[in-house]
Structure formats: C-alpha cells, structure tokens
Design a protein around this nucleic acid. Structure first.
Length: 414
RNA sequence: GGGGGAAUGUCCCGAGCGGCAAAGGGGGCGGACUGUAAAUCCGCUGGCUAUGCCUUCGCAGGUUCGAGUCCUGCUUCCCCCA
C-alpha cells in the first residue's frame, strides 16, 4: 500500500500524513482522473485554531498543491451539538453568538495556507449551519435516521468509551455522528465532494458519512485520516506552559510562536519539517544530517513564515538570535507598556512581573524570586520588595523582565 | 418507587480518627546539568496591602470552642432491587 500512483497520495504518504484510507486503490484512481474535491471540518469551540489543528490544515494545503480542490467546513452547526470523540465528558454548550464570533475569528488563518477563489482548484469555505440549522426533526429522522442502526452506533469508539467508563453521553452528543455524516452526504450532493479527511479520531464519523452518501445519493465517497500527533515523548501537540499554541496572531506573538517550534524535541524535528513546512524532502534529509539546532531554527522560521508571513518569521528569528546567541537586548521581544508616571512613582517588582504576564500572581512571583527565576535586565531579583524606577531603564528606554532563561518581556514606559 | 455508594485544592487523579491551606501522584513552573532538546536530580505548585489576614473540600442549613470530617435537606452521577 506504499506505492500510490497519484501525486496527491504519494505526497501525503511520503510526508507522513496517512493513517488510514477507506479504499486506497479507489481513491488513488480517483485522484488520477482529475481534480478531487475534499473537505475537513473544523469545530468552532474557540476563537482561534491551534497547532493541533495544523495537520488538517496542511492536508488541505497538500491537496491543493496536488491540483485538487479543498473545502474548509466550519462547524457552525455541529459545534452546537458537541463532538463526543475523545472526550470524557460533555463540553459546555456554546451560544450562537460565541460560535459566530469564533468562526469569524478563525476564518482568516486559512488564507495563509490556501488559495481561495472560484477557480477549479480554489479553496472554498462553507459553514454547516447553512443546512443543519434548518433541518426539521421528523423529516431528519425519516430520511437520515432510518439509515443509522443504533446497534452499530453503540460500537463506535466515541460512544463505547463513554459507556464503558460509565460516563454519561447525552442524546444530543449521540446525534453528533449523524450530523457529521449528513454533512458529508450533503457536501457530496451539492458541492461534488468525494473525500473527507480528518484526524484518526474522526474515522468513525467519516465512515458513517461514506455509508450515508452511498445510501442516500448512491455516491461513492472516500475517507482519509492522519495520525493523531503527539510529541516524541508522548505529550499532546500544541500545549505549552501558557496554554495552547494559537495560530491567530492576536492570541500569540510571532516570537512566541517561533519559540514553540524552536523548542520541539530532537526526535520530532524531521517529522515536523515534513508535515508543517514545504521544504523538499531531499533538503529535509540534508537538514537532518546536519546540526540539529540549525534544523530546529529552520523549522521554526518556515512554519512561522507559513502561518504569520515571512517578515514576521524573519523578525522572530532575528529577535531570538540577538536574545539567545548574543545575549543582547532585542527590541522586538514581546512587550507591555506602563504609564511613565507609574514608573516615576515606582513599580514593585512583583507587580511588574504580574503586569508583564510572566507570572500569574504576586504570590507566584514571590515563589519565583525564592527559586531564582526572575531577572530584571538580566540581573536576578533577590529582594521581592525591590521597586522599579526610571533609573532601571536601559539605554534603549525599556526594562527587560525575564522568567527563567527563555521567557522575556520588555516593559515600556509611555 | 425502594436500598446502597460517590462528589476534595477552578489542570487531572486521589488520601483524608472533629484542630487542615488539607497526604501522595501526574501535569506545570523554577533551579542544576546541557544545546533555547530529551533524560536525570533538586525546589515550588490557593490569594493578598504578608512574621499576619482572607478564601477553598457538590449546594444550603445545623451540632460544636472548632467541620472536608458529625446531623438534616437539596442537586448531580453511579450501582442493586422493583
């Protein structure tokens, strides 16, 4: 199954995206015949997607690179129900307003990965609220519900897991798989979609859609899942001290985004270069053979360039170089501004670190002082009662606050 | 409808004879060692105007000098009998 003939599957396969395909030969053949329309659904549970969503986004990008047509499905309708896959308990229900705001906020990141438009391989974004919101219950039961066997639904992992662990599964969530299957069938009928992709946890949901498409419209559909990404040491992708690694720039600075990739584990570098950059495989091999830290920098810069733009990436790389390799003060480190009158009056160190967002509370700051983790202008804070004054400003007119060795924030008076 | 059990530090799991800011993990953060990596070792892990004060053990009352711990009612979830 390793030798695909279509450029699309070949590309996905050699870069490590394939976990499972419903009908590999069939899909391979279809992809050779002409542009295939495929989609991936994204939940709108938060105001931004994060690194964990990048696998899916990149698969759509590869799809387009291989001459096919990606559809980004925003789950405006399904998010109201909540996907039980992989969750121990029901998520809190979101209001329409929040979901709408989330979608608006998520939308723009796709533009840096995909080319949208009206051409044959241009990407399109659709929202399943368009058709799910107006479904009528009884017609839904008659037309769709009759194709679903409860016996079979109970065997799906998302359901089985809850039942086995005695965790409640609401009827609402139980319906999620039906709606997702309906999405697939609907997109197949109205938009010519033939393939749904997703993470391996979506396999059951995707297979349901394939069945429904065949029963409802007699269309042969395909499913392809990618492995769920964990780091080399087994942790889930995309989580750091500060929480998720957001793709939206208003949620996480380009510098911090770059830093996330700079600090990945050694054993993940090649895998990530393949998955999250467009660097040719031959070049990746060369990077792997060279200095691992150079490879990490390249990874960080390329991924950041893809998500935030080349300029932001170069700037983040340069800021990191100055900060870590020269030990110099880099102007472009993340910063916060304080009123210069406050500074004149004197700002307590503890308060300053809280303001900078480096610690969560003054108590936390106190602990860090004891542990020797706080620095002002690269000098460790030893007195928790110290006060920052205008005389602490560097020649550049800022005060550099650091937590540990890696996290720095510039305090700017205004 | 009847009987039994469970809910603990707003990340998670989980101990807790009436004196508890509450054992122990995991996770996370800091330090040491390194390479801005991993592994390992050490420390920390409720808040504050901080030798003290305030708020935490599903919710609301009660007993007590004192309650996570005892009593009553309520909520939610599990199990057994109908």
């Amino acid at each position: 199954m390793t030798s695909y003939r279509s450029p699309f599957l070949k590309l996905l396969s050699e870069r490590g995206y394939i976990n499972q395909i419903s009908d590999p030969e069939g899909l391979d053949k279809l992809a050779l015949e002409g542009p295939v329309t495929a989609y991936i659904g994204f939940d709108a549970t938060g105001p931004s997607l994060h690194v964990g969503h990048m696998m899916g986004i990149m698969m759509l990008r590869r799809l387009q690179q291989a001459g096919h047509r990606p559809i980004v499905l925003m789950g405006g309708g399904t998010t109201k129900v909540g996907d039980p896959s992989g969750k121990d308990e029901a998520r809190q229900l979101l209001t329409d307003e929040i979901i709408g705001a989330n979608i608006a906020s998520i939308k723009k990141v796709f533009e840096s990965f995909l080319t949208f438009g009206n051409g044959p391989t241009d990407a399109v974004m659709v929202n399943n609220a368009e058709w799910l919101d107006e479904l009528k219950y009884i017609p839904l039961l008659r037309d769709i519900g009759r194709h679903f066997s409860v016996n079979r639904m109970l065997t799906f992992d998302s359901v089985k897991l809850r039942l086995e662990r005695d965790q409640p599964l609401s009827f609402l969530e139980f319906n999620y798989m039906i709606l997702q299957a309906y999405d697939f069938a609907e997109l197949a009928k109205t938009r010519g979609v033939r393939l749904q992709m997703g993470g391996s946890d979506q396999w059951g949901n995707i297979v349901n859609g394939i069945d429904l498409g065949r029963r409802l419209h007699g269309i042969e559909l395909y499913g392809l899942t990618c492995p769920l990404l964990t780091t080399a040491s087994g942790a889930k992708m995309g989580k750091t001290a500060q929480g998720a690694v957001w793709l939206n720039e208003d949620m996480l600075s380009a510098y911090d985004f770059w830093q996330y990739w700079r600090n990945v584990e050694d054993d993940d570098v090649v895998k990530f270069l393949k998955l999250f950059t467009d660097i040719p495989l031959g070049e990746i091999d060369a990077l792997a053979a060279g200095d691992i830290n150079e490879a990490k920098k390249r990874l960080a810069t390329e991924v950041t360039a893809l998500v935030r733009g080349r300029d932001a990436a170069e700037q983040a790389a340069e800021t990191a170089r100055k900060t870590f390799e020269e030990g110099a003060l880099a102007e472009n480190l993340p910063g916060v501004t304080v009123a210069s009158s406050d500074l004149s009056a004197g700002i307590g160190v503890l308060t300053a670190f809280v303001t900078a967002g480096l610690v969560g509370s003054t108590s936390d700051a106190r602990r860090q002082v004891k542990a020797g983790g706080l620095k002002v202008n690269d000098v460790a804070v030893s007195d928790e009662r110290a006060v920052l004054k205008p005389s602490d400003l560097t020649p550049e007119g800022v005060i550099k606050l650091s937590l540990g060795k890696k996290r720095h924030v510039l305090l700017r008076p205004k």
